[in-house]
Every structure is written in C-alpha cells, then in structure tokens.
Write a protein that binds this DNA or RNA. Structure first.
Lengths: 330, 330
DNA sequence: CCGCCGCTTGCACGCGCGTGCAAGAAAAAT
DNA sequence: ATTTTTCTTGCACGCGCGTGCAAGCGGCGG
C-alpha cells in the first residue's frame, strides 16, 4: 500500500503470498492459473480494495480499451440517445469512452490528435458535419488504429461506416406517403455539406421520381437545429409557389422545427394542410404535441456491431434496417 | 520511430540533437529551456509528427488531466448543453473527459471505480439521481482525488458542489408570479429521492408561504422526463379539486410535459387557463411551440469554476446566480 | 585572468503492469 | 518408481515519460 492510498498488484501479491504476475493472471479472463491461487488472489484483492490500474495496463499492453467519441453536434437530442447507448453498452464490455468535442471551425485532426494522445483503440465519429477527406489524412498522420463513422456515411477508404440503411428507410417512408395519397413532397435537409452526407435525400428523390415520374424539390436548412428549420420553412411558404402537401425532413429535430413553422408562423395544420415526416424517433417525436411519423435508427444494434469492430470480429461497413414509426403527422 | 508508427520523444531528441528530457521541456510551458533549443525541438517534432503520449505522461507524473463525467440522465436535453460546455471548455485547457454511464440500478461506486482505474484527476457527477452517502463511501474507498457534484446539491463533506443558486432563482420566479397576480401555484417536482435533491422545491414553497401566507402543494413525477410529467399533471387535474393557476416545474423537460398535458390531454390553454414555469432554459424552451418562462443555469460560469477546482484554485462549494427568462407561459 | 552565480542540459530512477520465456510443480503415462 | 506431459508460477525487460538533482556552460565583476 503506497502512501498515496493506491493499492498495487505488488501489495496484493504480498498479501496473497504469490508473485505480482500471478495477481495479474487472476484478473485476466483466460489466463493459465490454478483455481486455488486465483481465489486466494481475488480474496486478498478484495480485502485490500485493489483494482488493476488501467493506465499502466494500457501503457504496457498497447491496448487501452478506450474509444474516443467525437462529436460536434450537441443541439440534437438524438445525440443523447446515441451517447447513452454507446457509453452503457461499451462499458458492459470493458470499454471506456472518451468524449471529444470537435469544433466546427477547426478541422477534425485536432480531435483525432487528442484521442491518439490518449492512445484510444478506436475513434467513433458521431458528429453531423465533418470533412471526410480531412478525417482521412488526419487518420493517416496519427496513430488512431480504427476510425468508425457512426450513424453517418463516409466514402473514405480508411474508415468504417456503421449506419442505418438510408435506402431501405427512405423507400419505406416514400411508400407510406404514396399509399396515403400525398403527391407534392418537398425534402427538407440539413446544411449542404461537401462530404459525409447521408443518403436520405438522393434516395428519396430518386425513388419518388421512379415511382411517380415527378421530381422532388429539396431545400436546406442552415443548421441542424429547429430554429434554422423554422426559418427555412417559413421562407419556403413565403415564396408563394405551389404548396407542398408533405415535408420530408432529414431528421426529427428539423421536422419539429418545420412543424413549429407550419403551426405558429404560418397558421397551418399538421397533417391536414401539410404533413411532415422525420428521422431518428427522438423521445419528443412521441409526445402528444408532435406525434411525428418517423423512422427509428437501430442504435442498439449499431452499437453491437461497433463492439464487433472493436473486438476484431468485423471490418467492413454495416448498414442496418431500422423501424418505421407511423404517428399522426401523416 | 517505432515500427508501430508511433513517434517517441527519443526520436525527436535524435532528430534535434538534444536529449529526450530537453524534448520534454520544450513541450512544458514553464520549463527552464533556452529559446533556441525549444524552437529546434518543436521544429523536429513538427517534422516527425510527434505529440507527447499522455498515457505515459499520466503514469509518470500521477496527473492524468482527465476528468470523468458521471451521468445517469440521458433523457433531458439539458444534459447535452452541459456536456457540450464541459467537453469544449475543459478541452481548451488541456483536460480530457471520460464519459461514464451510471446505471440507476447499481450504486455509484462502480462508476467511480471505473473512473479511478483510469486515474482521473477528478470525477464530476452531472446525473440527477444518486445516493449521496454511497457516493461518499465509494469515494473513500477509491482513489478519485476530487468529486464534484455539478448542477446539483450534495450534503456530503467529501464532495464539492458547483451549482446554480436555487434560492435566488426560485425567489425570482416567485416574485415574477406574484407580480403577475398568480395565487394558486402547484409545484411539480421530479422523483422524490432521498438525497442530493435540489433546493428548488423547499425554497419556492417556503418563500411563497412567507410572502402570501398560503402554503403550496407540491407533487412529484415518477421520472425526469416529459412522459411522467404528462401522467402526473393529467392525474392532478383529474382529482377535480381547486384548479391551480400556475404549475411551477423543477425543470424544463417536466414543464414541457406539463404543457403537453394541459393542452392535449386536458384541453386547457397556456397561460390563459394555467401558467407554467420551468428551469434550465433548454433550446426547446425558446421554440414557438412552448415559449417557456424559465431560468437559465449559468453553465459556462459553472464550468469555469470547475476549472478553478481542477487546477487547485478553489476548494469550496459554489452557488452561482443564473438568468431569469420571461416568455409567454406566464 | 579568476571565481562566483544563474541559466541550461543530461541522467538515474521510477510510475504499475504485460509479454514471452523458462523453471518449477503437479499430473499423467510408462 | 521413473519418465513424460501438462499445468502453473516466477522473472527480466520494456511501455514513454516526469522528477529531482548534479554537471556543464556562459557571463559578470573584481
């Protein structure tokens, strides 16, 4: 027992009458150690309040069991759902999570550098706006071993994508709208970034065109928050052209902004005057105020696949189907 | 340069023609080193792509520059605001953030243990429900050096509280309501936990009693989310007793649930039939759908004080005033 | 030109644990 | 009982860097 209060493996070894290495083995799942001495060690450890020092362990083994979660979008409540799943599920499997804030202003390499300095075994990007190429070069220069793009698509070959299958999802939404007789959708997307887009917009517009022969207009909000969506939708209707009968939104938070604009800026009813669909199924989407028709991303399943990647069982892109949720806005 | 691609201080030392320790000094702010050799080292480091290994550094110096953020409430969007501030501001000062999920079912010591095994310099609890005493004993047994309760109150002597000043806040809300002529408030709180409460309820009820002579009824939702608030408010009005003219809610997410219940379950208007106040000023509170009168916690200032604690300039509880925000629900 | 002082640099040692090997102990086979 | 095999344990070395001290270097006044 050191003076600073930390108990080391040596202390446990002394107490249990074995060597330090036997102590280490007792804490390792598949180590070659007799049941008797493992029990002896664990009892001594328990008595002394010993727990292995993961920092020293990481340094020695070159495996930190740490993953960096890199995010630059803290305005969408859905990120909270993602964080909850990631931290909880990864933790049950022994993985720690380092939350790294990626400012939009700087490039992603600072975030990646911060992660690599802590020797994370992988970095998971859950942010919404980032430059795909910069991420790639930053990855090349640093020693982040794995880079996973979560709930987002990446074209970068050094990167692994784990995402909801946008194609299946948007077709299901389009089929639903067609079956309800909607004819004039407008697609409301987030900011028109250069890379790491979703496939939702193109899937929807192309599929709609294929099924009806009519093309779909799409517009972009300035940011991924409901304020920007309110402004964009208000502006859309101020143009005075033919009125859409449904707004297909890239995610729920934008859809909620769209609904607020329709109801409180434009005095229109949802869905009687204009219908709305979202994406993500955030908690608020199920509230009586919104009752948003949306599509739930399979975050839990996606996190399981992330574990597969972390633990070396998977090394290719994954696109998983989610769940269409029909409520009262269509 | 190692074969695994990592550049160490030794590599930089060779390239710059100095010793490894001079390299370390070049990266340390107030180290005794000549300007010439610092520039030489930094140039070599830049050329090689060297960045100090924080893991090894932590092990050697017994300072990790890591803080654990312990949370068990992922249903309140305000947590996203808190996480954004904490990660961004702490990062600018060289602190990394480990996000730890604290399940409600188990006690807090597992979370604290996880943090201590990574040698965090401090743990910051931002969760809403936790047992104050267990936290204390867990702290005693582990080597987490500092335990900070953030945006919450703790009675535990081993713990530091950094929070919004509930007393000032609730008096301001009460004064506002009194000036608007409200007479029959009901206080709507979250779950009635045994410890680590906020002071909002007692402050409000006592202050209201002192100013009007009338006592305030208070009720509790089963959870800190809007669904539970909807149920509780619906049940309250189903009782059929005298109707309150304002619902004073412990936070915004509960206030939003209350508003949804009033509007969509009970057919009442806000604020004409019943007024509502919240707490936190989450983004949604400013939306046209809610326009919630609320009180903004000074998260940025609180984070600055947290830095003071982390860097040893402060070691006592802090209660900071926030900002009352009057909107259209009162 | 000498000696003292202040600035700069090098270095031994340690942080706590993992890896891979080899020796020792126990069990199995002969 | 002896040899062989299997299991279990101990250990040297290293992971990359920080701390504290001592040696080296230059400059100044006398």
């Amino acid at each position: 027992m050191q003076d600073n209060g930390a108990v080391t493996a040596d202390d446990v070894a002394n107490a249990a009458g074995v060597s330090r290495w036997t102590v280490a083995r007792a804490f390792k799942k598949d180590a070659s150690i007799s049941r008797k001495s493992r029990e002896k060690v664990l009892a001594a450890a328990e008595a002394l309040g010993y727990a292995p020092d993961l920092l020293a362990s990481s340094l020695a083994s070159d495996r930190s069991n740490l993953v960096a979660i890199i995010n630059n979008d803290f305005s969408n409540p859905h990120k909270l759902v993602v964080l909850e799943r990631l931290t909880r599920i990864l933790w049950t499997r022994g993985w720690g999570t380092l939350l790294v804030h990626m400012s939009d202003s700087e490039d992603a390499s600072a975030a990646l550098l911060a992660a690599s300095q802590r020797r994370v075994d992988a970095a998971v990007v859950i942010g919404t706006r980032f430059d795909d190429r910069i991420l790639g070069t930053a990855l090349g220069a640093r020693r982040v071993k794995k880079l996973v793009i979560f709930a987002r698509y990446s074209q970068n070959p050094d990167t692994l994508t784990i995402a909801c299958d946008d194609v299946i999802a948007m077709r299901e939404i389009a089929d639903h709208l067609l079956s309800r007789g909607y004819q004039h959708p407008v697609y409301l997307a987030g900011p028109d970034t250069q890379s790491a887009k979703l496939h939702r917009k193109t899937t929807f517009t192309e599929y709609w065109q294929a099924r009806t022969g009519f093309s779909v207009r799409s517009i972009h909000a300035d940011a991924y928050d409901f304020g920007a969506a309110i402004d964009r939708v208000t502006a859309l209707f101020a143009e005075g052209g033919p009125r859409p009968d449904v707004l297909v939104c890239e995610n729920d938070i934008i859809a909620i902004g769209a609904m607020d604009a329709l109801r409180y800026r434009l005095g229109l009813r949802v869905p009687q005057d204009v219908a709305v669909t979202g994406f993500d199924d955030i908690p608020l989407a199920g509230s009586p105020a919104y009752g948003l028709t949306t599509y739930r991303q399979p975050i839990t399943a996606m996190t399981e696949r992330l574990l597969d990647v972390l633990e070396g069982r998977l090394s290719s892109d994954v696109h998983l189907p989610g769940l269409f949720v029909a409520r009262s806005t269509t």
